[in-house]
Nucleic acid binder design. Structure first.
Ligand SMILES: [Mn+2]
Ligand SMILES: [Mn+2]
Ligand SMILES: [Zn+2]
Ligand SMILES: [Zn+2]
Lengths: 134, 134
DNA sequence: TTATTTCTGCAACATTGTTGCAATTTGTTA
DNA sequence: TAACAAATTGCAACAATGTTGCAGAAATAA
């Protein structure tokens, strides 16, 4: 399915910057930092980029993978909608090359804490990616 | 042990703002957002607050619990030093009252991912705290 | 093609991050 | 205690990101 169809399926009009963001995020396995997105989308006003990211998040097309040192990383979603955001995967950041990957776990992680009722979990792992450990 | 002694033990001079920050962070079970710290420490220049937080983190007295929507949350460490930062606990944020707690798990969480070598984990849970679920 | 709705770019301002530097404060030594 | 050296603070200054209002442009519906 092409990006234009994806946008329509999520109640979003097809515009240049939306197509450009989806293209910039590539295959969805990696998250891109805001700064890199802004650089790649330099032809557009940064306010538009800001609002477009909000819209794509809201409609379930992308998600914020992590925030670090004031910079947010964004990645494609797989199968989310406005009313159902499901991100049961972890984010792995390589301390060496800085790459941030969206990785699915084979076995589910679950635990409970006394007194509190857990709705969602965000897990960020750091270490060395396969490319950098070779 | 009082705050002044704690500072000395971590190779830090005893100054007003450092004592004030340690006092503002209370008993260490909860993390405070930057904005709240800045408000509580209004008598000091914000650059000094910025650099003092960096120094306290570096020396192992406090840690950044989480970053959310461009705001960082800080909490006291327990037993960290400049050369050994160990934070084997999770951060829980209540969706209702916004409180962020540092919670230790009874059982260790560990998992592996194919191809990558994991050095550290950051886990943030969200839900409803005991006070808000009552 | 026209009308309606949505989106974009621009201006404007707030907040946080960050560095340099001179004045002040702290800890040390005589 | 006084003088000294080292570390810390406050202020100015600038960068980056977040955020809103609004008018013109673009996308869809009729
Ligand atoms: Mn992800
Ligand atoms: Mn903590
Ligand atoms: Zn790597
Ligand atoms: Zn609560």
């Amino acid at each position: 399915m092409d990006a234009a169809t994806t946008l329509k399926n999520h109640d979003l009009r097809v515009t240049k910057i939306r197509l450009a963001i989806l293209e910039a995020l590539g295959d969805g396995h990696q998250a891109k930092p805001y700064g890199e997105l802004q650089a790649a989308l330099g032809e557009f006003d940064r306010t538009t980029l800001y609002r477009t990211l909000l819209a794509l998040i809201e409609k379930g097309l992308i998600h914020k993978a992590l925030e670090e040192n004031g910079e947010s990383y964004y990645a494609l979603c797989g199968g989310c909608t406005t009313h159902a955001h499901t991100h049961d995967h972890i984010h792995f950041k390589c301390n060496d090359c800085g790459t941030v990957e969206c990785l699915h776990l084979s076995n589910e992680i679950g635990f409970s804490l006394p007194g509190v009722d857990i709705d969602s979990l965000e897990i960020t792992a750091k270490g060395t990616c396969s490319a950098c450990s070779a």
